[in-house]
Write a protein that binds this DNA or RNA. Structure first.
Lengths: 206, 206, 206, 206
DNA sequence: AATGAATGAGGTTTCATTCAT
DNA sequence: GATGAATGAAACCTCATTCAT
């Protein structure tokens, strides 16, 4: 009922009823995967989660907050994983490969979530997309550091423009996931880790 | 204004004032660039175009039709250009470069339109996204043919998986445009033609 | 362009272009028969009549005026016929039968018009329904006079309440036409003249 | 309020406030009586019922559903009454008289409702009118059975065409109610039970 | 006289959010 | 904390009517 409760997100929810919080989040992912961001009605999310409409607003400030929470939880996961991997694998080539692996494994194991992240998020407002970008920044920074380090250790081309290389890596991963979703997530995304890595490494030219 | 534009026009508009048709389309691009697809109210598009609300419906079946018309006009342009380029340049390396050039030049000269195409289109319904994919197919086929031909003539790696390579190329271009838009379209997108082409060709590894 | 032209209905229309006036009226009957009063769009009436939308307004003040004109033409026909018949046949029994015959013959030969008169007119506004009643008044008066005269000459029951008898006659005719329309106007309405007349005469009791 | 009323309620309303359901229904009858079906704006019905616009849609699927509900409640009442009367009174003459009595009493006690039923319903779409006909069928069947039975027991003319007789009875009742409404429902409709019955029985001829 | 493109007011319906219980 | 009935703003689209040509 107080403002703090609604804003406190995780801290409050965990104190109050983490199960219900997670249930709503899971329901939201499911409903959004089916109907997209704008098509996802709060009432349907509530029904799917087995709570009353009003209850949703005890755990989330508004509909947008649900989406942001999904993003925070899942992008956060990928980002943290990437940061951890960077620390764990000092070797740039291995780090890069682990990064691709982490990305494909995380999304590949949860197509519904992937659908929301890749497709439906982009239906939201400018503000949210800005937040997504902000959340992704550590991931991008990790990529940059790996690339720069690799140039220094001589495993990546000296002539590389790091920003362009970063966008190529990210764009390729993104498009690969998109294509996978678009095909109905029917094949195993992780089988593409190796070929994608190789293609990024050697390019297409002879 | 050119003949090409009239091709994209819906049959409804054929009979009427082409200038007004273009005005509404331009207004729609502007408003959608500002507010996204769902945020773009027909009333605002009409006001921006200097016509009455009802007039919009003399030129377009409904709001969705406006979006589709934008797509048809612009994606169609890129697609036709790509097909034409493929025929014009039998040499795969040159064809690929020309393709990147065409993509960057077309979008680079109209940031507002690029914003709609890259970002806001994805706010629309599944059905529309399907149409986008369908419209892009010739472009993808062109890419595939260039890649396959290049493998035969020995300028592209034999080991390449064409689909993955295609996604890398498309993903990289897409992400590059996205980044450009996100930075406010402040720099000249065409300056990236060369480095993007080079990076795609040689990859990042030594 | 002047007000007189629009209001002058028949007098003007006949001077100007009676054919076009009739064409619009016929088109209106057809379209209303298909779609009802509210469903009948002026644009469609115009197209059906082979004229431009605006032309309709040269012959009719507005949409309501078209309906009223249909009524005036057709109800007027029935009413005039009834008045004429009353004068022509001094014998009340014969006059009554001729009236029923006139009613059934007029509508029975034009199911589309009957549909508009019986069903769709009633979709219009209070004001129009009032006008219908006004137009029908002479018909009702004729009925009353026939009944009263018949009582005096001893062919109708002395105990009859003329108003109730009149409503029975009119209600029976009306319901018979309705039923005929509802069945798709598939049988010949005039075959019912005799049995309806007989039933009205003798009632249902032994 | 009574059990009967809940039968007619749509499933949606079952779970909610029956009083509000009735309030909206009553408001709809009132507004439609004033302005007709097409003239009855949902917003005005809501205001009249003392609820928000949206609330109407918690109790009714759409505007058409409101009308159908009115029909269901009231025609249903007349129809059930007629069926019950038929069972209660084996004597055809008495059954017929009771039927007329039921019809006049039901509508005579609620002129506003009668206005909607007699006049405004007919402004609705073909589909709805079909439903009205369907709802009235049991009533028509009851009439037919009474007539046939009466012929067998010798109280009705053997020469009678049952369908024509039925239309005469129904048409006469209908027209009587119409005339009553048209006069502003100023006199007592039930005083006409007897004379209408007598006129139907004996006809107008000597 | 005839055209038909343009107008814009107006109505139904949806759905995120609130708040009394 | 939980509920879910109620709210009411907001938006697309239609179509009768006008008026410049």
């Amino acid at each position: 009922m107080t403002i703090r409760k609604r804003w406190g997100m995780s801290s409050i929810a965990q104190r109050k009823d983490a199960a219900k919080y997670q249930a709503i989040l899971a329901a939201a992912i499911k409903v959004m995967a089916e109907s997209g961001y704008h098509g996802a009605q709060v009432a349907r999310i509530a029904r799917e989660a087995g709570v009353a409409d009003g209850t949703v607003y005890l755990y989330f400030k508004n509909k947008e907050d649900i989406l942001i929470s999904i993003l925070r939880e899942t992008i956060g996961q990928i980002v943290m994983l990437s940061t951890w991997l960077e620390g764990e694998h000092p070797e740039p080539l291995i780090a890069l490969k682990k990064l691709i692996e982490a990305h494909f494994t995380t999304l590949g194991s949860n197509p519904e979530l992937a659908l929301v992240l890749q497709v439906h998020i982009r239906q939201s407002d400018k503000e949210i997309r800005q937040q997504v970008t902000d959340m992704m920044r550590p991931y991008q920074m990790t990529l940059s550091r790996i690339l720069t380090l690799g140039q220094q250790t001589g495993v990546f081309l000296q002539t590389l423009d790091v920003r362009i290389a970063r966008r190529m890596i990210f764009g390729t991963i993104d498009e690969t996931v998109n294509a996978w979703i678009f095909r109905g997530a029917k094949y195993d995304l992780t089988t593409l880790i190796e070929p994608v890595y190789e293609t990024l490494m050697h390019g297409i030219g002879v």
